[in-house]
């Protein structure tokens, strides 16, 4: 389906571009989720808004991030799932041959956790769209922290695997 692209760029360049786009989307997602998680873990009182970088970092209106985070998670996931077909052949097989078992293990865990995160997006979105309902405060807080932790884990593991053996290496 994508064969026409290869008239203009090499196969290697194509998959490398996809990997970079996947990584950039992950950066955006990570930033948004970290802001939001900080805003629920350490909410800022109105009077303290003017002071310091950390205070400003956690003083965002978390509800405004919810839809963007859902969209970013889905799109990043789709790119990751697309790249995964090539990872399985051109990255994982060499990792097996070089006996990088733990590297593969942490990557497998990443795939599991981001999939569970995908399933949590509808309730995450609902809880943030009802951010004024105090009945949802606890669930909203811990679900956001969970998704942020998964995102950080996925991001770091993706980096590690790319450092061990990225596309084109």
């Amino acid at each position: 389906m994508m064969d026409f692209v290869f008239d203009y760029i090499s196969v290697n360049a194509f998959w490398t571009i996809l990997l970079i786009v996947h990584g950039l989307l992950a950066v955006a997602l990570l930033g948004a989720l970290t802001h939001q998680a900080m805003s629920v873990l350490m909410p800022v009182r109105q009077a303290a808004i003017a002071s310091g970088f950390v205070t400003r970092f956690r003083s965002v209106q978390g509800a405004g991030y919810a839809t963007a985070i859902c969209v970013l998670w889905v799109v990043t996931f789709i790119f990751g799932a697309w790249i995964y077909t090539k990872y399985r052949i051109y990255v994982r097989i060499p990792l097996e041959q070089q006996e990088f078992w733990r590297t593969q293990g942490v990557f497998e865990l990443k795939e599991h956790l981001v999939t569970i995160g995908l399933g949590l997006l509808p309730i995450y979105w609902y809880l943030w769209k009802n951010a004024r309902n105090q009945e949802y405060d606890s669930a909203r807080k811990w679900l956001t922290v969970y998704l942020a932790a998964v995102c950080w884990y996925g991001f770091l593991v993706g980096h590690i695997v790319n450092n061990v053996r990225g596309f084109g290496s």
């Binding site: 999939t115 569970i116 995908l118 399933g119 949590l120 509808p122 309730i123 995450y124 979105w125 609902y126 769209k129 009802n130």
Partner: peptide, 20 residues
């Protein structure tokens, strides 16, 4: 309307837990 729907709330809770 989705954000205020109790049926969507129920669906989303069960969908999230069941997916995991």
């Amino acid at each position: 309307s989705l954000a205020t729907s109790t049926k969507f709330r129920t669906f989303a809770i069960v969908f999230g837990v069941a997916t995991a």
